[in-house]
Structure formats: structure tokens, C-alpha cells
Amino acid sequence: MATSLPKTEGGPAVSRSAFRRSRGDGPFRFLSVGSGVILLAIMAAIAVFLVVKAIPALQANTSHFLTELTWNPNATKPVFGIGALAFGTVVSSFLALIISTPVAVGVALFISHYAPRRLASILGYVVDLLAAVPSVVYGLWGVTFLVPFMLGPSKFLNDYLAWIPLFGGDSVVGKSMLTASLVLAIMILPIIAAISREVFLQAPKLQEEAALALGATRWEMIRMAVLPFGRPGVITAALLGLGRAMGETIAVALIFPATFTISFRILSPNGNSIAANIANGFGEATPIGRGALIASGLVLFVITLVVNTAARLIIARRKEYARAAA
């Protein structure tokens, strides 16, 4: 016996699959909008929590929070500021970004346009797997292997390139800003490489084939067709990696010398970060000390939010990515 199809008012009958899709659009839209609202509510709740917990410590602080280099919130008269911590966070993260981005782009190009299909599949799986490795593993590897290993290269840089301020200084140690930046670079490299690989694979095939048909070499084709298309995606991937590096805690807490000074000499025993200071100081902090650490976490929250917002704005400028992200 034939089953009659539902009819729209004043219109022809619609198919059963279309009717089911129309009935499912409403709940799906509700769940999608609700998920977005819940996410925004969680972020707002985190921000409110940080502000409420930080206000008592900021009121008790006897110095300027944004410029003070000393960190002693547990004293009778608390004195603390994030000047040195913010400096170490930004410098180490940008050094990691400078080191990792060219390598990540090269890895992404090799996987997407040079490696045979089977090898590219294996390498893509390895890159995705490295992105999932816990940060504590990188930190332990950095402490046990990279810190002793970096003594030789650091001494070489100090002996022959000390005329460059970055490599100057009277003392060279393994636990330095350079070592911490290298660990961060290795951590964010798989993220940048994975995102860049997916962007390069979306490059228009017709443009690639047209460039090759006109006699361009493979590198010329990549330079003319792939890199211009993927530039916004690579920038976005780099900014996402920068946000990951700024928020990293355990790996840098194990490697940073935990000093509160501002110095551009990346081979000397100088350096600290907001996240590492929170991890190292939270266990022994007084109520005012915990409030000070939460206040520094609020600053880190704002910095990472600005970085991720910048990545979103960059990706929105390219209509192809804007449609994919919508």
C-alpha cells in the first residue's frame, strides 16, 4: 500500500528524505547555537573568576603590577609584578615561533607536494601523533637530554658570536632562554605543520596544473600557486602555535632558571614565564600569593585571547577559509 507524502501548504508534495531533513534542522540549529552560547558563557565565567580572585591581591600590592620586576607576594608588604614574567613569556614564545615555523612549513610542503603518497600518509600520521604528545614528556626530554646537550652549542655561540647581544654574557648554562625556546619550538612544530599541510592540500589543482603546463618547475609552481593561497592559513597556524607556546606550563617550568630579570642574553641563566611561575609558586603561596598568581594568569588569559582573535581575523580575510570556518 502506497504511503502518501507530506505536502507543503499550497505546494507540491516533498520527498520523505527532504521532510526528515527539514524536521531535523530545528533541533540541530538549537544544539549548535546552544553549544556556542555555552562556550562563550564558560569563557566569561573564567574571566570573572580570575578578576574576582585577583582583586584582593592587587589591592594589597605595594608596587605597580604591570611594570614591577620583583615577585614577592608572600611578604608582609606584598611586592609583585609581571614585568619580567611577561617579558620571558613573549620572548621565549616568539623565539620558538621563529625557529619552528620555517621547519613546519617545509615539512608540510614535503608531505603535501613532494613525498610519495604512502610515505606522505605515514609522515602525516607521525606529525599528528607528535601534536598529541603531552607537554610533560617534552619537558622531561628537555631536562634530561637537551639541557646537557645545549652546553656545547651555547658555549660556541658565546665564544664566536658574543658581539651579538643575544649571544653575549659572562656565564653560559644549559637551562637558559634558548633551551626553553627550543623545547617550545619542538612542541608547536607539529601543530603548525599539520594545519599548514591541510591548507596546502586545498590549493586549487587547476592552478597547479596550469603552472606545470606552462613549464614551471615544482618549486616555481609551489611559489606561484600554493604559497600565495596558503599564506593566511600558515599565518593562522603560526599564531595558534604562538598561543600554545605562551600558555605552556610544565615543559618551561622544568627548564627555565626561574629568575625575575629582564635580559636579552638568551644563553645566560635568565628567564621565566607566567605559566611556569604559576606552576612553581602555587603550592607554597599564601592567600595573597595565590591571588597574585591568579592575577598573572588573567594577564596570560588576555594575551592568548588576543593572539587567537588575531588568528581568527586573519583567516576571515580569505573567503575560502571564512566559509570553511563558518
Score class of each variant (00 low, 15 high):
144 T>M: 13
162 A>H: 15
219 W>A: 14
175 K>T: 11
147 V>D: 08
170 D>T: 15
160 Y>T: 13
176 S>T: 03
220 E>Q: 15
143 V>R: 08
217 T>L: 09
141 W>N: 04
154 S>E: 12
187 M>R: 04
130 L>P: 00
146 L>Y: 02
223 R>Q: 13
219 W>Q: 13
199 V>Q: 10
222 I>Y: 05
129 L>C: 09
195 I>W: 12
204 P>M: 10
172 V>K: 04
180 A>E: 02
196 S>N: 10
189 L>R: 05
195 I>C: 07
199 V>Y: 11
143 V>Y: 09
194 A>C: 09
152 G>Y: 13
181 S>I: 07
193 A>V: 13
194 A>V: 11
171 S>A: 14
208 E>K: 09
190 P>W: 11
145 F>H: 05
161 L>W: 15
183 V>G: 08
184 L>H: 03
179 T>A: 08
135 S>A: 14
199 V>T: 13
222 I>S: 06
225 A>P: 01
155 K>F: 08
132 A>F: 03
135 S>I: 11
225 A>H: 02
156 F>W: 15
154 S>V: 09
219 W>P: 07
218 R>K: 14
213 A>F: 01
182 L>K: 07
179 T>H: 04
182 L>A: 06
143 V>Q: 12
146 L>F: 10
152 G>W: 14
134 P>M: 00
197 R>Q: 14
134 P>V: 03
172 V>R: 04
130 L>A: 11
176 S>G: 02
212 L>E: 07
225 A>T: 02
143 V>D: 00
211 A>G: 07
203 A>T: 15
201 L>S: 12
190 P>Y: 09
174 G>M: 03
141 W>R: 03
138 Y>I: 09
197 R>F: 10
208 E>C: 02
172 V>L: 08
158 N>Q: 06
136 V>I: 15
149 F>H: 10
173 V>W: 01
194 A>T: 12
142 G>C: 09
194 A>L: 12
190 P>F: 08
138 Y>K: 02
134 P>F: 02
181 S>H: 00
178 L>C: 07
167 F>G: 02
190 P>C: 07
171 S>C: 03
134 P>Y: 00
139 G>Q: 08
138 Y>E: 06
149 F>L: 14
157 L>I: 10
129 L>D: 05
156 F>I: 12
216 A>C: 13
183 V>D: 04
213 A>G: 14
150 M>Y: 02
198 E>F: 12
172 V>F: 06
165 P>T: 08
164 I>H: 11
174 G>S: 04
171 S>N: 14
203 A>I: 09
169 G>L: 02
132 A>C: 12
224 M>N: 13
163 W>F: 14
197 R>K: 15
136 V>A: 06
207 Q>C: 01
157 L>C: 13
198 E>G: 15
223 R>M: 06
138 Y>H: 08
200 F>R: 04
131 A>W: 07
209 E>P: 00
216 A>V: 08
155 K>R: 14
156 F>E: 04
221 M>F: 01
165 P>A: 02
225 A>M: 01
184 L>C: 03
212 L>V: 06
210 A>Y: 00
195 I>A: 11
163 W>L: 12
129 L>N: 05
203 A>K: 01
199 V>M: 12
150 M>D: 06
138 Y>F: 15
158 N>W: 02
220 E>T: 14
161 L>E: 00
159 D>V: 02
177 M>C: 03
188 I>L: 13
163 W>Y: 14
168 G>I: 05
222 I>K: 04
160 Y>D: 05
222 I>Q: 10
223 R>S: 03
204 P>G: 01
206 L>E: 15
